[in-house]
Design a protein around this nucleic acid. Structure first.
Lengths: 127, 127
DNA sequence: TATTGACTTAAAGTTAACTCTAAGTGATAA
DNA sequence: TTATCACTTAGAGTTAACTTTAAGTCAATA
């Protein structure tokens, strides 16, 4: 699989994919004899994994650390697990924060609805 | 209330608060005769609101748009409501994405646990 | 055979969101 | 009254995460 195809498949620009490889965010992608990237299944799975984690806000720094541990083999399994647990905790906090913000927005939207229906004359004291 | 106090109260640097005011992310804060910011209740509520929204990932661009609408008065109430609804939708998507990532991390962590307990010999095919 | 187009690299540029610096003012403590 | 300290401003600098550019290679098509 060439980079163009992978780019479409995961909706990431070719530049971003090359960039991810360059900084070690995904393991080195195999090349053809003429030096062109030839993505195999494993490369694709890494890209999909990184994309998922990045989209949830995990930093490149943390993810490259994870890849570096992976490259060092099975002796880093505990360290990798620890890293994943920490990141999961972070996502849980974030999830809570977002849930609260959504509630707050819903409340504000409700007030706007009441105003629209004329049920509220005490015009909006923002915020 | 002076900026130092507000900074502690909301855990934002003084620079960030001044920056937020400068770019119009919060309405202009009242000053003493000698020109020093004197935060009243409303200013504080704006800061708290903006902090909450920023922490959930809402962009400065969207938030300044909201403040600008607010400054134009009641005729922008519908527009403000629309903006909030859009942002709420975005947060809902984000929430879902994060929930999926958390599940994925939990699955991976579980596999690491099985490996640790020796229940799995097929050593980890990442990712 | 010449040219097109997808690929390569290294390195410079961009964007969002701060963060810091420099130069200056005004009120209070020694 | 002098010096300290919290504040002011405008503007330059930083960081993370891309994104673009420039210069070049290679394989397939006109």
């Amino acid at each position: 699989m060439r980079i163009a195809e992978v780019s479409k498949k995961y909706n990431l620009t070719e530049d971003t994919i090359r960039y991810y490889e360059k900084i070690g965010l995904i393991p080195r992608v195999p090349r053809t004899k003429s030096g062109i990237r030839d993505f195999d299944d494993e490369s694709c799975r890494w890209i999909e994994f990184i994309k998922c984690m990045r989209n949830s806000g995990m930093t490149i720094e943390v993810l490259t650390e994870y890849i570096n541990l992976y490259k060092q083999g099975d002796k880093t399994i505990e360290a990798r697990k620890k890293l994943l647990i920490e990141q999961k905790e972070k996502l849980l906090s974030k999830q809570e924060e977002i849930a609260n913000t959504i509630k707050r927005l819903e409340y504000k939207i409700e007030i706007y609805n009441e105003i629209a229906k004329g049920e509220r004359k005490d015009f909006l004291k923002e915020p």
